[in-house]
Amino acid sequence: MKGQLPKTLTLGMLQDRLTTIRQEHQVPTWAPVKVELNGMSFQLNTGNFAVTDDGSLALELSLPDAAVAAIAYALEHPCESPMEFLRCWNEGNFEALRTEWAEVPAEVFIGADPLHQQSGGAR
């Protein structure tokens, strides 16, 4: 189990691990870790998460791009009228998207639909 991080991390645990790495001159290994802020889940990785020398956490998180998510969904589901889907999204007819395409991911609405609720997985 050496090298694996527990599911719940505390600042003290991270500081202890960083000290151990420095002492043993190890290269840190990363296990998938997610953090949730305001009901949105973010994957932490070496590109967006760091522990500074003073033990502070540095996070660089960004919201998903709704337009990219909408185009990706339309391309992945071509049998479900992708042009109509994109037309509804472009016109802001998000209710039609929810009604006609039940499997649309939340990323399609985040930042585009002013009525979208981010917490609790509601769309």
Rank of each mutant, 00 (worst) to 15 (best):
45 N>W: 06
50 A>P: 03
98 R>M: 06
108 V>E: 04
54 D>A: 12
3 G>H: 05
77 H>F: 07
93 N>K: 07
87 R>N: 12
105 P>L: 08
77 H>R: 13
109 F>K: 03
3 G>Q: 02
109 F>S: 01
52 T>P: 00
121 G>L: 07
63 L>P: 00
90 N>W: 01
41 S>W: 08
83 M>C: 09
56 S>V: 06
12 G>T: 14
68 V>P: 00
22 R>G: 10
112 A>G: 06
51 V>R: 07
15 Q>Y: 05
94 F>M: 03
74 A>H: 02
72 A>Y: 06
86 L>F: 04
65 D>C: 03
118 Q>H: 04
84 E>M: 10
2 K>N: 01
71 I>K: 06
4 Q>D: 09
85 F>K: 07
78 P>K: 12
54 D>C: 10
63 L>A: 03
102 A>C: 09
94 F>P: 00
53 D>A: 15
109 F>C: 01
118 Q>L: 09
81 S>R: 08
93 N>P: 01
41 S>T: 14
41 S>H: 11
104 V>E: 05
115 L>S: 12
87 R>F: 08
62 S>Q: 13
51 V>A: 05
103 E>R: 04
122 A>T: 03
81 S>D: 15
64 P>K: 06
17 R>V: 08
42 F>G: 07
70 A>Q: 02
55 G>K: 11
28 P>C: 13
84 E>F: 05
112 A>I: 01
102 A>Y: 06
97 L>V: 02
42 F>M: 09
45 N>H: 14
87 R>W: 10
101 W>P: 10
1 M>Y: 05
75 L>V: 12
34 K>W: 10
120 G>N: 08
111 G>Y: 02
63 L>R: 02
23 Q>H: 09
23 Q>R: 13
75 L>W: 07
4 Q>M: 10
100 E>N: 14
44 L>W: 10
59 L>R: 11
